[in-house]
Design a binder for these strands. Structure first.
Length: 238
DNA sequence: TACCAGGTGACTG
DNA sequence: CAGTCACATGGT
């Protein structure tokens, strides 16, 4: 008994944000003390649990690899051993090394001038770097450069699907275009929104959703179908 | 134990 | 555009 999907409007998106903020409170993202730490964390967390990233970040700090200069000077084999706990360590060592070389080559090993670029330009430049895909690029633009892009991830796409929202195309850019066209372009709010989605999907809307304890089950197709018996259904289904 | 976690690149229909 | 695979560690 699954409900038909419908195209969400601005009210739906604002309501989802308000309800998650009320339920969970501010999330204080991104947890980093510098642009350097934020960008390294964004690369290390690719398809990886954040706790493993924390271990790798701690080891980087202990190894005195805690600036673009120090990454640039480090051997890639050393980087790989240090970031090993975050998984995919050979690839990730290469990614952060290449990023330091990019900053050295084009921006004097600093993100200051890079972040002066307009959003579309900045995004294009970041995506041109090996190992920087759409989500990592948008993480950097939003949480380090502090410009208003809406970050999409696996969780966002799972959540919109369960809510019963029809987003087309159903890929990264389709989702980003929908959120950005229906919400005010506010970097603070975008940052909080993405963080709330992450928290909600980490704790409640997991691969197997915990609808019985979900604080926003009343606005969700999946929750309605899961916890409501046909007789007691309280959700009109489009 | 097998599955999963804040993706990306390379490659195939 | 959608699907598949390799990449790898640590927690449950």
């Amino acid at each position: 008994m699954s409900a038909r999907k419908y195209r969400p409007n601005a009210i739906d998106l604002q309501r989802l944000f308000d309800r998650m903020l009320s339920a969970y409170g501010p999330q204080h993202w991104w947890p980093a003390e510098s642009d350097y730490e934020m960008i390294i964390g964004a690369i290390l967390t690719q398809n990886t649990a954040w706790r493993n990233v924390e271990t790798a970040l701690t080891q980087l700090k202990s190894a005195h690899i805690w600036s673009w200069d120090e990454v640039f000077e480090a051997q890639i084999e050393t980087l790989a051993e240090v970031v090993r706990p975050s998984g995919y360590f050979n690839q990730k060592a290469r990614k952060i090394k290449l990023f330091s070389e990019f900053l050295d080559r084009e921006f004097g090993r600093s993100t200051d001038d890079l972040f002066q670029l307009p959003i579309d330009n900045l995004r294009k430049v970041l995506l041109a770097q090996w190992g920087i895909g759409p989500e990592t690029a948008d993480d950097i633009i939003l949480y380090a450069a502090k410009k208003p892009v809406f970050v999409i991830d696996k969780y966002t796409q799972r959540l919109t699907s369960r809510l019963g929202w029809e987003i087309k195309p159903a890929n990264y850019e389709g989702h980003r275009a929908s959120f950005e066209s229906l919400l005010p372009h506010d970097a603070k709010m975008f940052g909080e929104y993405h963080a709330l989605i992450d928290h909600h999907c980490n704790t409640t809307c997991q691969k197997t959703p915990k609808c019985a304890e979900c604080p926003i089950v009343d606005i969700c197709n999946t929750g309605a179908a899961t916890i409501s018996s046909p007789e007691s259904a309280t959700h009109p289904v489009a």
